[in-house]
């Protein structure tokens, strides 16, 4: 009896030692994985200030936010009308223009310039670029078309162009992020 007890105790120590080695292994793997996630300097809250005073109705500019393009577009009354004429509930990603702009500033459409399909930069912000059949943006990679409120209307993209967090610091300056 005492003999088997002794054997069991010994087995227990070996199992415990191997388990400790296992715990150590996991402890080593955690930092090795976590080192690949974004570093503090990348995550540091960054913001971009954009002067929009020179953007005429119908024009758009590209700015940079978090190493990605941002489209700032000054919509014409006609474009606003076109966007509002669509029944939002019939869309793939139902949103109205008002939901995608700031109150009282419905003509300023600010979205990320990143197609929600696979990340290409859609055309339509630059002077003379194709705006696609819905007059907004057109992604040449796989043919996603966005309307004047940058909502997805046709093509493979799953959702509307993302609206980043932003605020108007003044009538002519927008702070993104």
């Amino acid at each position: 009896m005492a003999e088997t007890e002794g054997v069991r105790r010994r087995d227990f120590i070996n199992i415990a030692a191997v388990s400790a080695a296992g715990v150590a292994g996991v402890g080593i793997v955690i930092p090795l994985i976590s080192q690949m996630s974004a570093s503090a300097d990348v995550l540091a809250a960054s913001s971009t200030e954009i002067d929009i005073s020179a953007i005429q109705p119908g024009q758009a500019i590209k700015a940079i936010f978090r190493k990605q393009p941002v489209f700032v577009r000054n919509l014409t009354p006609k474009e606003i009308e076109e966007a509002n004429a669509v029944d939002a509930s019939s869309l793939r990603d139902p949103q109205t223009l008002a939901e995608r702009t700031k109150e009282g500033k419905e003509n300023w459409l600010i979205t990320m310039g990143v197609c929600t399909h696979l990340g290409c930069v859609p055309l339509g912000a630059g002077e003379g670029e194709v705006k696609g059949e819905f007059g907004g943006y057109f992604c040449p990679c796989h043919g996603s078309s966005y309307d004047t409120a940058a909502r997805i209307r046709k093509g493979p993209a799953p959702s509307n162009l993302e609206v980043p967090e932003y605020e108007f610091s003044s009538d002519t300056v927008v702070k993104i992020g």
Binding site: R10, N14, A16, A17, V18, A20
Partner: peptide, 22 residues
């Protein structure tokens, strides 16, 4: 934390070694 854990693990490892070579 690391050193305390390693101390514990090393003692266990040593006991296991003594066991196996008993």
């Amino acid at each position: 934390a690391v050193c305390l854990f390693l101390l514990f693990a090393t003692v266990l490892g040593y006991m296991s070694y003594r066991n196996i070579w008993a």
